[in-house]
Nucleic acid binder design. Structure first.
Lengths: 212, 212
DNA sequence: CGGTTTGTATACCGATCGCTACATAATCGA
DNA sequence: TCGATTATGTAGCGATCGGTATACAAACCG
């Protein structure tokens, strides 16, 4: 799973919009990634075909391959975009001042993201990537790493709060982070199955009660 | 998603092993379903090809289609087999005498099933079925219904215990069932990502604490 | 035994898969 | 305006997809 840094700013252009020498691209790359994200999110990696992608973006295959390299690299772009969007939600939760509010805000954010009306229900990192034939672990591994990164961020924050006295010294920050991440993943599965925000918010209350 | 009752006992044979008139089948159907189950479990529906299935079972395509009808019907058979296996685990949990032990036994059973050494990690109903093109909801719906059935069974048991006084009258059996099911699904996601039994058992303790 | 029934193996179907060769169009620096 | 460069549209590549036509093999019944 190489990451050849497509579309990077190409250091050297002070503030100008980079415009290469050749024919200009006829579609917006970021918008294309968003369309791809929606498809991968809704259908998963294996069930989403290049024909689906080109149709959704409104381009022909050569344009897709020029811009992204392959279906798998486009998937990685979409996943990175997804991580960027959800990263903001995570940051808001991590900024909360105590364990209970971090947990409540995180789980609430997961529910909101997984039940957003104009997005597929559920979580891309859970339902997007089982698809791997024997020996093709790249897709699965990427999504697993992303889930792990969220859990690690929670753990780091709980360690901070523990040092500040906001978490009892005999409590394990890593175990707590795993618990919260587990509930979050379960909530995403529930949302993928059609559960509503109201139903899922009752789960948050159970979880917060554990923590408090 | 029709269920044409393939391989039913064909009432009329008192106690004899049914042996039709034609050439006998050269492979064991139940064993074939188990092989298919493992593949669908590990790779998901969309990423598993008929060639994968015939190779794993050790037969040629016509035999698969004679016995099962289609890839999708074989998937349904595999899912039913999966439900049968996990149904036993669920029954053990439901037989426990109080809320806390039901929850503990259920979540422990989920962990054991999702981390069994000689099976794919995780849960078929979560990672097996995202695969559906626009308009092909059969696969996803089947798995969603299966998860829902587990949650409903928990809810029914909690209602029973509530009537017996084992659950406070102001507690919602459905909300509790949703919480427990959510944690179970989260545990399955964690297992699919490589978490160990020991790590996941700490999550059970958090959850049980909430309930008690 | 012959006739019927059922499963197997070979070989292959049209459709679609991910991907690309090629010629053309549109922009650049000079 | 002229190459050089980059993207686009058309058309199609070999491989594989889910599924099957056909002929043969192995059991039954009479």
């Amino acid at each position: 799973m190489t990451t050849p840094d497509l579309e990077k700013p190409a250091d050297g252009f002070p503030l100008s919009r980079k415009r290469g020498r050749g024919r200009p691209r006829a579609f917006d790359v970021d918008e294309a990634v968003d369309r791809a994200l929606e498809l991968f999110w809704r259908q998963g990696y294996a069930a989403t075909t290049v024909a689906d992608l080109t149709a959704a973006i409104g381009i022909n295959p050569p344009s897709l391959y020029k811009a992204f390299g392959s279906k798998q690299e486009l998937f990685e772009r979409a996943v990175r975009r997804y991580a960027e969007l959800n990263g903001r939600v995570l940051e808001v939760a991590l900024a909360c001042p105590d364990v209970e509010s971090v947990v409540r805000r995180f789980l609430t954010g997961v529910i909101e993201s997984a039940t957003e009306a104009d997005c597929p229900a559920g979580c891309l990192t859970i339902q997007g990537g089982t698809a791997c034939r024997e020996g093709e672990h790249e897709v699965t591994d990427l999504l697993t790493a992303l889930r792990r990164a969220v859990q690690d961020a929670l753990e780091h924050r709980f360690e901070q709060l523990k040092a500040e006295g906001g978490l009892r010294a005999d409590q394990s920050a890593s175990a707590l982070a795993r618990y919260v991440a587990t509930v979050g993943q379960g909530l995403a599965v529930q949302a993928g199955g059609g559960a509503t925000r109201e139903e899922l918010m009752t789960v948050v209350e159970f979880s917060v009660r554990t923590v408090a």
